[in-house]
Design a protein around this nucleic acid. Structure first.
Lengths: 301, 301
DNA sequence: AAAATAGTGTCTGTCAGACAGTATATC
DNA sequence: GATATACTGTCTGACAGACACTATTTT
């Protein structure tokens, strides 16, 4: 681009070129903002607070899907990159400047938004939930953290010699902090192997109180989060504060991967990524834990 | 979506809603179509043909970037999903119905297209190059396979205690089959670690004969291809024909990962994914190889 | 026989998983 | 001392890397 020179002919072409003659869609950036936060009060002073995966949702004040819950997001303006839109929205909603923010998917199915042709570019954001200061609620504005859990039920597995369809029913359980609002969405996954190639398709069975196709987006983004953590474990640190105990870090991994890890093995695995600090967690009814921080040098090769 | 009922009030809102009041971008789907093909003739009857990574490029017949080479692609129509656009374009260009086709990135930088606000959703396609029948060339149409090679040069590595920038200069070498057209593009990668989060940015230094920001797109897509293969090795099979020798398969891995693999280890690793056939490759000046096919059952868990 | 590729057996060191055991705060 | 968590040492088996060796075809 930098060393591209236009001819006079090309300039003339561009002057005549009328881009408005083509029909075009509005572009939205919707963000799955994920963090790990305490889930209710600890029932016992001795026990550590129970944490779980949280996602930020916003109650829609306007049609369509008025009063439904949706991913935070907004429309892309002509003077910004979609990535900038996402960054701006993230800042507006959470007041957090620094977070993991990566593209996750494109949702452009026709009819997905009753207002017309609107394509959603979705993002995954990971942040330390404690850093987040939600925009205050008003009559027209309400943002809440929802705990989120996935359940999986593999339904069928038909196959002949060279092809197969694997149907999986996913249940996405969302629950707000006061536990008075619970949404249970159901989404089917169709994984098809045919002609030596794989295709995946998702279909919403039940959106419950979720707006648009956001049940699908939430599911797919959470599944991609797990894969990302398996392939690039360091992104879990994006969910952590500046200092943390190793148990907290292990919990974060366990919550995302949905499996118990053995402490000794876990610590060996992440040893290079952390540095011990002088500090110690105090006040718990048990042996206090050392606080660690990231060993930044190991985060790039 | 399925069980969403509209109120009368909502219907009224939607009737009044005028989406055309907002400025909106055109959406393009551009595809990096990758395959592995023979590179020139074998110089010796005994030796196996040398294969290399190829990418399909199209010579632009119109402004802007007339006579430059670009990724195949096209605009998204109001009646289709972006994914369908990509699929349609792929079929039009190559006449291949079955290929690996996955979203790769979004490019929406302002000024990336002199015609106006055009956002490109990019895709990665992997196919058996032998299956591909390129649309015939005309005065206004030319599509060619280009061999593609990456070179990497890590320039700096500045860092203080908690932050760092890693600057890497990438050279993308593209060469057509008759070796009379060589393009050498240069793209910088800026990997920044700051405030405990990583951000990556790319900047084109020299596009050579490539249109738009396609040098950047090609680089990023190739880098993501390598990562994908490391995390999910089975996608390499999408580049293979129905039957293949294990040496051909190993070559495919070596070409993508840019490293020599040890045969014995490689074969152990992929043993579960393949099944021996009765067939044998004949006519080479050396011991003939058995032909294998995919063991489809192992491609899903 | 020479050339070139096809294909196998085995040693070794590393590392993940499992588990047992020790340490240390608060109440 | 009871409770609950913090933290470490070591055994085991799986597996990736390295390398040597054998096999088989055509010219």
């Amino acid at each position: 681009m930098s060393n591209y020179k236009m001819s006079i002919e090309e300039k003339k072409f561009l002057e005549k070129y009328d881009i408005t003659q083509y029909e075009c869609p509005s572009i939205a950036a919707d963000i799955a903002i994920i963090s790990i936060l305490q889930d209710g009060e600890s029932e016992n002073f001795r026990k550590l607070p129970k944490k779980c995966l949280k996602i930020l949702l916003i109650k829609r004040a306007n049609y369509p899907y008025k009063d439904c819950w949706a991913l935070p997001g907004g429309f892309c303006r002509p003077d910004e990159d979609v990535y900038e839109t996402a960054k701006r929205e993230l800042l507006e909603e959470t007041n957090v400047k620094n977070a993991y923010l990566q593209m996750a998917g494109i949702y452009g199915e026709i009819g997905r938004d009753p207002r017309g042709w609107i394509i959603s570019n979705t993002f995954l954001a990971l942040m330390d939930g404690e850093q987040c200061h939600l925009r205050a609620g008003t009559d027209a504005w309400e943002a809440r953290w929802f705990s989120v859990e996935l359940e999986k039920f593999e339904k069928k597995n038909e196959l002949d010699e060279e092809s197969a369809i694997v149907e999986t029913e996913y249940t996405v359980k969302l629950c707000n902090e006061s536990a008075d609002l619970i949404m249970v969405a159901k989404v089917m996954e169709y994984k098809e192997f045919k002609n030596y190639h794989e295709t995946i398709r998702y279909e919403i069975l039940d959106s419950d109180g979720l707006a648009f196709d956001h049940a699908k987006i939430i599911l797919q983004t959470l599944l991609s989060l797990r894969k990302k953590v398996e392939n690039e474990p360091t992104i879990v640190f994006d969910l952590m504060p500046e200092t943390f105990t190793l148990t907290q870090l292990q919990n974060a991994f366990e919550i995302i991967l949905q499996e118990k890890l053995l402490t000794a093995n876990f610590r060996r695995k992440i040893a290079d990524y952390v540095v011990e600090t002088e500090q110690i967690i105090e006040g718990a009814g048990h042996r206090p834990a050392k606080l660690f921080r990231r060993n930044v040098k190991t985060f790039y090769r």
